[in-house]
Each structure stands twice: as C-alpha cells, then as structure tokens.
C-alpha cells in the first residue's frame, strides 16, 4: 500500500521546513515575568522618574535660591514622567501578551 505512494516532492519538503521554521521563530519567549515581576518593574519605572525629578528640582533650587518652588514643580513633572514610564511599560507588556495570543491562536 505504502509502496504505491510517490515520495514527497522537494517542494513539499521545502514547504514543511518553512512552516517549522516560522513556528520556531514565532515561538513565545521562554521567560515571562510573573505578576510580582511586572509589579516590581512598573513601580521601579515610576519611582525612578520621581527621584530624577526631585534631584533636578533640589539642585536647581540650591543653585538659583528658589527653595522650595522648583523642587515642587519638578516633583510634579517627575510624577508625570513616572506615570508615562509606567504607562509605556504596561503597554509593552500588553503588546507582548497580544502578540502571543495572536500567534498561538492562528
């Protein structure tokens, strides 16, 4: 029975190889941080920007002698930058999840 079947053509083999390779390329990354890792990531993003804002404000204040107004201003800006950082990081995490769903769903 099996002897009647012609051997698979080279094109067929090529096709299967390509399929296997693309499956390999779109395989999900071996590591995904858990919820704790994600929370830690987002919080460091926020805190870091706040610290930078505070440092800039503090130094400008002692340089220009405008204590404490620039510190307050840059704390607010730092907070905004921190939120922006966290927003972008969260968006990247979400994009990664979406891509994964798409590739595993297809």
């Amino acid at each position: 029975m099996t002897a009647d079947k012609p051997p698979p053509s080279l094109e067929d083999l090529d096709e299967r190889l390509r399929k296997a390779r693309s499956a390999q390329e779109h395989a999900k990354p071996p590591t995904r941080s858990g919820p704790i890792g994600q929370a830690l990531r987002l919080s460091t993003e926020m805190a870091a920007a706040l610290v930078v804002g505070a440092v800039i404000g503090w130094n400008l204040d002692s340089w220009l002698g405008t204590k404490p107004w620039l510190l307050l201003l840059f704390l607010v800006l730092g907070l905004a930058a921190g939120l922006l950082n966290a927003y972008r990081a969260a968006k990247r995490l979400q994009d990664a999840v979406d891509n994964e769903d798409k590739s595993s769903g297809a």
Partner: peptide, 22 residues
C-alpha cells in the same frame, strides 16, 4: 518636553535599581 526628559533620564536609574534590588 521636561516630562520626556525626566522620563529619559530615569532610565539608567530604573534599570540599575531593578537589578540590584532584586
């Protein structure tokens, strides 16, 4: 622009703090 600059400057801090704190 200040917000973006602070966000940019905060990168090395969040990058280093994350690893060391962990």
């Amino acid at each position: 622009v200040p917000i973006e600059i602070i966000s940019y400057l905060s990168r090395p801090i969040s990058l280093s703090v994350r690893l060391a704190a962990n």
